[in-house]
Structure formats: structure tokens, C-alpha cells
Amino acid sequence: MGLVQRLTDPNIRKHLLRDEGEVIVDEVSHHWVVFVVPVLEYLLAIAVLIAFPFFPVDLAWLPLLLAFAIAVHATYRSLVEHMDRFVITNMRVFRVNGVFSQQLATMPLSRILDITVQKPLRGRVLGYGHFVFESAAQAQGLREIRYVARPDARDLAIQRVVQRAGLRGPKVN
């Protein structure tokens, strides 16, 4: 595996407890809306390059450097969003994020007390929402997961896994 592939692949499977029978129920990447700002930054870099002929010859390096810096920033922001993954398994939920250094936050299903799904108006129109997890722990890395596509379906998937694991009371008809 090359350096570029290691930096662009979150490699979720290496964090699974395979010996314990853990399987992925859902792997959640961010909604496409998080890539709008990096795309706009790329367009700005292109606009700077288009304006290149209008700069004096002695300052010709300035638009090239500026366009390169903008494109590098847009690439980094895209990678940050791409590498941020929220994973639901049959035993726990966890989040892996980070480009150069990675952070892993894990919460067993039994510790999830409440899940709030926030859907702002823009999110309702575009199909995304935010999860806020409440647990017995004070502070954790899974408190808020933002820009989740299909938040209602993801919430039902978590509730279904929790129910199948027998962590909530039996269904009452």
C-alpha cells in the first residue's frame, strides 16, 4: 500500500474485533454538502490562474503561488471530510478521523442513553442531519457527529442494533 493510499483510506476494518464476531452494520461518511466549500476553493484557484496574464511580469509568481496554496488547502479540507467516518457495528459505534494522525473514539452500545437527531432546514432540504449522543460518560469523542446523510435511516439502524443486542427492554405491543 502506497503513501497516498494510506493517507486517503480510513481503513475501518482494522479496528474491528473480528475474534469477538464484530461486523459492520453501517459505515457513514459525510454528506456531499461538506465538499461544497473545497470545490468553491478549487474554483477560486482556477479563477486566480485565469487572472494570471493580467499580473505584471515581475509579480507573475504571486498568482501561481496563491492558486497552489488555495488548491492545497482545498485538498486538505476534502481529505479531512473524507477520512472522518462514523461506524455502527453489532457491538459498538465508533468514529475514525484525521488525515496525518488518526483519532479513534469508541462507545459500546450499552453506554448509549439517548440519540438526538438534529435536522436544520437546510439539512431537511438536502437530506442530512447531525447526531448528538448522550451517554453515561461526561466527555467523549462521539458526542456530536455532523453532516450525516439519511439521518433518520441511520438512527433507525442504531436503534435496531441496540434492540437486537437486547440492551433495551422487550417490545411492548
Rank of each mutant, 00 (worst) to 15 (best):
1 M>E: 15
2 G>A: 01
5 Q>H: 02
7 L>R: 07
9 D>P: 09
9 D>T: 12
9 D>Q: 15
12 I>F: 05
12 I>Y: 03
12 I>H: 03
14 K>Q: 05
14 K>E: 05
15 H>G: 10
16 L>C: 12
17 L>G: 11
19 D>Y: 11
24 I>Q: 08
25 V>Q: 02
26 D>Q: 08
27 E>Y: 10
29 S>N: 11
30 H>S: 14
31 H>A: 02
32 W>H: 08
40 L>N: 10
43 L>W: 10
44 L>C: 14
47 A>V: 06
47 A>C: 09
50 I>W: 05
53 P>W: 12
53 P>Y: 15
55 F>K: 15
57 V>K: 08
60 A>T: 02
62 L>N: 08
64 L>N: 02
64 L>D: 01
67 A>F: 11
67 A>I: 13
70 I>C: 14
72 V>S: 15
73 H>I: 09
74 A>M: 15
75 T>Y: 03
76 Y>V: 10
76 Y>F: 10
81 E>H: 09
81 E>Y: 15
84 D>W: 08
88 I>A: 03
90 N>T: 04
94 F>L: 00
94 F>Q: 00
96 V>W: 06
98 G>S: 05
100 F>C: 10
102 Q>G: 02
102 Q>E: 03
103 Q>G: 11
105 A>V: 13
108 P>W: 00
111 R>S: 15
112 I>V: 08
112 I>D: 05
113 L>V: 08
116 T>E: 13
119 K>C: 01
120 P>A: 07
124 R>T: 06
124 R>V: 06
125 V>G: 08
127 G>T: 06
127 G>K: 04
127 G>H: 05
128 Y>Q: 03
128 Y>A: 00
128 Y>D: 00
130 H>W: 00
131 F>M: 05
131 F>I: 04
135 S>C: 05
136 A>K: 09
137 A>N: 10
142 L>P: 05
145 I>Q: 00
146 R>G: 01
148 V>I: 09
148 V>K: 07
149 A>Q: 01
150 R>T: 00
151 P>R: 01
155 D>N: 13
156 L>M: 09
157 A>N: 02
158 I>R: 12
163 Q>P: 10
163 Q>D: 10
164 R>Q: 09
164 R>F: 15
170 P>V: 12
172 V>S: 04
172 V>G: 03
